[in-house]
Design a protein around this nucleic acid. Structure first.
Length: 765
RNA sequence: ACCGAGAUGGUGGAAUGGCAGACACGUGAGACUCAAAAUCUCAAAUUGCAUUGUGCAAUGUGCGGGUUCAAGUCCCGCUCUCGGUACCA
């Protein structure tokens, strides 16, 4: 994921990009063609705030930060292809964001509507639903307010089903948690809309949505959301209309924050003078308006079945409404019974299991025109307008005669004036269609639009004529390995998937999922908190690099924990990594460049064995499991074995071959030191492009092995056997072993097995 | 409440159903040193028994069951922690 140019790298960045660099370098050394890009998500609010504070243009502030962070990236030695660097605030880039906006507009995926929207009073802009976390702004943590405004939206809901179904392709390649978060957010539910006619009122009906149609015989009241428009339409029939409209008004005045607090305080008013009719049994059903029916979900009207729904039960108790049981249960009606069971009090449907009844009743509803089967989503359309300056301008003109008119493609990019004085000139323009005076849209796009497609641009970053050329996109895309924080599960990662599907439908690309493999790295914390200026617990990578060197910092951040886990920063742990690098460095002075190991054959094969095991482990850990911590620890074991060999044999000659293998294996983690030592060894070419070693499976296996002997599941001794020994041979070795025979206590062996997994099992009665 | 993920020494963490605690930090001891730092080497789960001493036995991966010759790992039932969603009908 590309970074926002805040001006300072933090340890989270170091972790994210160290993982990426290790993977990229590994694949380069495996002779693959690797595109390892970097760019900047450089539009956004902090630049604007800083601009106001320092009285400079946000562009200058942003450029300054990018240069600073670029320097930091380079000091860490990440293997980026800087010729493909992109900035989303660059005209050359946002021209294509605007172009995509126009394409989506042409295809009816962008529209304007007046609605209640999330407003952050600190950021002075509206926000998308995904960007409101626990009622607070995702960026500044300020409480969200609600406003009625006309704004631009993208129809992400058109793709709700595709976004959900696309998960099957990601199931083994994306973290479960991300998929589950997206699934919850999309919130698909199967159900049915049922029409409730009104008693003696023939031209109106109430449409309810339910996921439990099998309980329809248990309906004892209907609940309308306060905002439901039928309340006003039935004004003349409702005898207590004053009370009802007072209730509606009181409720309307409340912010959603207060409504949230009202959760356990369901209130409501009965609509006197009217009632609905249950189409299944013609029973008259009272109608209520209540705060617990939500206008934004379903139809804003529900059929209440208090016997089998907690919330309906609560409301029924409070307002003394009848409770009718329709699913058999042993429990008394002190609590609603919400599980499956056998239907009762349901006429022809009695005796059917509620799970089967679900389909049977839906069929019945559709056949008799009582309603229709529907699927609902929680996902809402994506609000993309932002009342900000430092963002991609929305290429739209409002004309009194023609209405909403798009800017012509050839006039892109559309940029805001840099000086305030030129604003009026910018706003007042001519309509591209009819030529009369018109006004420009002054809002910008949500920056998440910029970052929804940026990775594609890397494939053809410097194309001045097209968004990208198809051959290049087809060659590189989709992204093989994407790495970033989990906090983007329902924002960037959802938006990008959506955008990708749209672009596929527009014929721009061929694939429908943008990121084949996703790795979500854990946070880097200090003393249990995420590093932040307010907590005063920020560790600056610059100081660490200064003190220990970039390699040590990279190594430590990968060694301390597996990449998906939260990592609590510790200054003592970094010493260990520093030590490893020193130990490797010091080995350089005792390698024997001329002859091979002068040690005994046994020592020689022992070290070769460890080396082959290490190559095997490191390869697997980088390529498959991403357990860099395990990879590094196995390299430590190899280094340790050389030190032990040296210590015990008093031999100061270490094999050059083994030493070079250590350097190669370390290169994805600590490229600087490895390059240096590689050169000192006399190599002319970079180690970074040297071939990754291949291990010999045969050498990793010992022919003489010591194996444990289990008697009834307990380890009772150990014997030495040859790898190829058969059962008979092993048996005789055991019989010769006095210790084991003593522990057997009983000579009668019932079952004897020499199991391949390097363990001997004896079962005694 | 629902949906995910997880729980292993003083700490970070290893373990295709097969010797739990690799590797590292920290700790202790030794070597080197006039001394210290650095470096190198060695040690350590718990309890009980035995012993001059190398030992022996039992227990041990959040809790309780189960499958298996064998469970940190698989199955069933809990507890707790973290993350997400939440009056979503």
């Amino acid at each position: 994921m590309l970074p926002y140019p805040s001006g300072e790298l933090h340890m989270g960045h170091v972790r994210n990009y160290s993982i990426g660099d290790a993977i990229a370098r590994f694949h380069i050394m495996n002779n693959e063609n690797v595109l390892h890009p970097i760019g900047w998500d450089s539009f956004g609010l902090p630049a604007e705030n800083a601009a106001i504070k320092n009285k400079i243009h946000p562009k200058l502030w942003t450029e300054h930060n990018i240069n600073k962070m670029k320097k930091q990236f380079k000091s860490l030695g990440f293997s980026y292809d800087w010729t493909r660097e992109i900035k989303t605030s660059d005209k050359k880039y946002y021209l294509w964001t605007q172009w995509l906006f126009l394409k989506m507009f042409e295809n009816d995926l962008i529209f304007r509507k007046n609605s209640k929207v999330n407003w952050c009073n600190l950021c002075k802009t509206v926000l998308a639903n995904e960007q409101v976390l626990n009622g607070k702004c995702w960026r500044c943590n300020n409480d969200i307010e609600y406003k009625n405004m006309e704004q631009w939206f993208i129809k992400i809901t058109n793709y709700a089903n595709d976004l959900l179904n696309g998960h099957v392709n990601l199931i083994n390649h994306w973290p479960k948690q991300v998929l589950s978060m997206q699934k919850n957010w999309i919130g698909k539910s199967y159900g049915v809309e049922i029409y409730f006619k009104l008693f003696n009122i023939y031209n109106k009906k109430i449409v309810v949505f339910t996921t439990r149609p099998e309980t329809v015989f248990g309906v004892t009241f209907i609940v309308l959301a306060p905002e439901h428009k039928i309340i006003n339409e039935l004004k003349e029939y409702i005898t207590n209309y004053n009370d009802v409209s007072n209730y509606v008004f009181e409720n309307y005045k409340k912010f959603d924050k207060d409504k949230f607090l009202d959760k356990n305080n369901k209130t409501g008013v009965k609509l006197e003078g009217i009632c609905a009719i249950n189409p299944f049994n013609m029973e008259k059903i009272p109608i209520f308006v209540s705060n617990y029916s939500l206008i934004e979900y379903g139809t804003g009207a529900i059929m209440a079945v208090p016997a089998h729904d907690k919330r309906d039960f609560e409301f029924a108790n409070k307002y003394n409404i009848k409770i009718k049981q329709v699913i058999e249960s042993n429990a008394l009606i002190e609590y609603p019974y919400e599980q499956d069971g056998i239907l009762i009090n349901s006429k022809n449907f009695n005796g059917i299991n509620s799970r089967e009844a679900f389909d049977i009743i839906i069929d019945f509803i559709e056949k008799n025109n009582f309603g229709k089967k529907v699927t609902k989503f929680k996902l809402k359309d994506w609000l993309i307008s932002r009342q900000r300056y430092w963002g991609t301008p929305i290429p739209i003109i409002y004309c009194n005669d023609c209405g909403i008119v798009t800017i012509k493609e050839e006039n892109l990019p559309l940029s805001f004036p840099e000086k305030i004085d030129d604003i009026k000139k910018f706003i007042n323009t001519k309509c591209p269609k009819c030529g009369i005076n018109a006004k420009r849209e002054t809002d910008t796009m949500d920056t998440f639009l910029d970052s929804s497609w940026y990775y594609m641009r890397y494939c053809d970053a410097n194309n001045n004529k097209k968004i990208f050329c198809k051959e290049k996109i087809n060659y590189w895309m989709p992204v093989d390995q994407y790495i970033g924080g989990i906090e983007h599960a329902c924002m960037h990662l959802l938006y990008s998937r959506f955008w990708c599907k749209v672009m596929k439908d527009l014929g721009l690309i061929k694939y429908s999922e943008p990121f084949t493999n996703l790795l979500t790295q854990g946070m880097v914390t200090l003393n249990g908190y995420a590093m932040s200026k307010s907590k005063n617990n920020v560790v600056s990578p610059d100081e660490l690099i200064e003190k220990y060197g970039a390699d040590t910092v990279r190594l430590f951040i990968l060694f301390s924990a597996p990449p998906t886990k939260q990592l609590n920063w510790s200054f003592s742990g970094i010493q260990g990594c520093c030590r490893l690098i020193n130990r490797i460095w010091n080995l350089f002075y005792i390698i024997n460049t001329k002859s091979d190991l002068s040690a005994s054959e046994y020592e020689k094969t022992k070290i070769l064995k460890i080396m082959n095991i290490t190559i095997k482990k490191v390869t697997k850990c980088i390529e498959k499991t991403y357990h860099f911590n395990v990879a590094i620890s196995s390299i430590m074991e190899l280094v340790n074995s050389l030190y032990l060999y040296k210590y015990h044999s008093n031999d100061n000659n270490i094999s050059k071959n083994v030493y070079e293998t250590i350097l190669i294996l370390m290169t994805p983690f600590t490229p600087h030191v490895c390059e240096e030592l590689w050169e000192k060894l006399g190599h002319k070419k970079y180690i970074s492009f040297y071939k990754w070693p291949i291990f010999d499976e045969k050498i990793t296996i010992d022919s003489l092995i010591q194996i444990p002997v289990q008697i009834n599941g307990k380890i009772r001794g150990k014997i030495n056997v040859l790898l190829n020994d058969d059962e008979k041979k092993v048996k005789s070795i055991i019989k010769k072993n006095k210790n084991i025979m003593l522990k057997l206590n009983c000579k009668q062996i019932i079952r004897f097995a020499y199991i391949k997994n390097k363990i001997v099992t004896i079962v005694v009665k």
